[in-house]
Amino acid sequence: MKVTLAQVLAWRLRQQSLSPRTTASVEQLVGQLAGVQAQVASAAELALAIRQKEPHPRAVQEALVARSLVRTWAMRGTLHLLPADGAAAYLALLGAARTWEKPSWQRAFGLSPQQVSALGEAIDEILDGRVLTRQELIDAVLARPGLEGLGEQLASGWGTVLKPLAWTGRLCQGPPRGQNVTFTSPRSWVPGWRGVPDPDEAAPAVISAYLAAHGPATPATFDAWLLRGATRKAVLRGWFESLVRSEDVTALARIKPSQEVRLLAGFDQYVLGPGTSDTRLIAAARRTAVSRSGGWISPVVVHEGRVAGVWEFTEETVDVTLFAEHGAVPTAGLEAEAAQLARCTGSERRLVVRVG
């Protein structure tokens, strides 16, 4: 069966509750999107609110407090919101790559696999039933014999040496304490936590969730989204061999191309799922406008399923820059999206549109 690119993009818009919008909760949406990048918390909140007919401004924070969502290091080593009842499956696939055992990782971050193992055992004990700030956690680790020399690595804002502990189910974020991030153990924090499963058992659920939101996709595209291609190819092939999503075929064949306009948040899953290098979604010459320095992913204008421009908030405006080569984008659609952003943020801003 052949489908057009326009049909694929329209199907993704529907699968991700962008067209039409949804009455689903933030927990349901996070599961539907196969996680939501939350390196910038406000971007994650807006990405979810944009998809809702009636956005609730504190929904994400309430879900984190209720422990129905978990914030932890996940795909590509970045912070994500994950559904509490499905987080362990994602972590299993990330941990399967054992990136911390590779010589290049050890040279870059200064820890041996044995030190990572010892650090994990210490974290298990330190965080059992406790919620600690980063500094409190560092102080507790450095007080352990044999771990006194890890202060610099643990203090890194990127948290690189803590990511293997997240992926092996030993650590996740707890509720903020003022301006401070906190950490705790999933064993005592996540309701019904049963540990990180075997990757082969977890793979069908995670890959199905990814394909349901971002498919059709190749194993390589999935692995680029998961961990920038770090999974061993034989393992990846094994995960995909027995997986078929036949239920999507009929829906893809029937869907009509989208004419919708959407203003999406920075770091939106619609862009991150296939990746910014996908020229069917983002014109090659415009990639740097979307994927900027420092790992920043711009808020984007989507029209007919493709990225048609970028936008940003100022104090008084929604400032839109359309890509000239894309062609005309309906003004009425942009105005409706500015109104949706006002509903999401509680702040009305004037729409300003330019072509660049």
Rank of each mutant, 00 (worst) to 15 (best):
V3I: 11
Q7I: 04
P20Q: 12
R21E: 05
S25A: 08
S25M: 08
Q32D: 06
G35T: 06
A41S: 15
S42G: 15
A49W: 00
K53V: 15
K53C: 10
P55C: 02
H56T: 14
Q61I: 12
E62A: 08
E62L: 12
L64C: 01
V65I: 14
V65G: 11
T72V: 07
A74V: 01
A74Q: 02
R76L: 02
A89R: 14
L93M: 05
L94W: 07
L94V: 05
G95Q: 08
A96L: 04
A96W: 05
T99E: 15
T99D: 13
R107Q: 13
A108T: 08
F109K: 11
Q114E: 13
S117H: 13
G120P: 03
G120V: 13
L127G: 04
D128S: 11
V131Q: 10
L137V: 05
D139V: 07
V141W: 05
V141A: 04
L142F: 05
A143P: 09
A143W: 03
R144E: 06
P145I: 02
L147S: 10
E148L: 06
L150V: 03
Q153L: 10
L154H: 02
G157S: 13
G157E: 12
G159T: 11
P164F: 08
L165I: 14
T168N: 12
T168H: 13
G169E: 01
P175W: 10
R177F: 09
R177W: 04
Q179T: 14
N180H: 14
V181N: 15
V181T: 14
F183S: 11
T184R: 02
P186S: 03
P191L: 06
W193F: 12
V196A: 03
D200E: 15
D200S: 15
E201D: 14
A202P: 10
A209N: 08
Y210S: 01
A212C: 08
G215D: 08
G215E: 04
P219R: 03
A220T: 14
A224H: 09
A230S: 13
R232Y: 15
F240Q: 02
S242Y: 13
V244N: 15
S246V: 09
D248T: 06
V249P: 04
I255N: 05
K256H: 10
P257T: 05
Q259A: 14
Q259P: 13
E260W: 11
R262P: 00
G266T: 03
Y270C: 00
P274I: 08
T279G: 08
L281S: 05
L281M: 02
I282S: 01
A284G: 14
A285S: 14
S291G: 07
S293P: 04
S293I: 13
G295D: 06
W296V: 13
V300C: 06
V301A: 03
V307T: 10
V307I: 09
V307G: 01
A308R: 00
W311V: 00
T314I: 05
E316Y: 11
T317A: 10
D319K: 03
H326T: 13
P330D: 06
T331W: 13
A332I: 09
E337D: 01
R343L: 07
R343T: 11
R343Y: 07
C344W: 04
L351E: 02
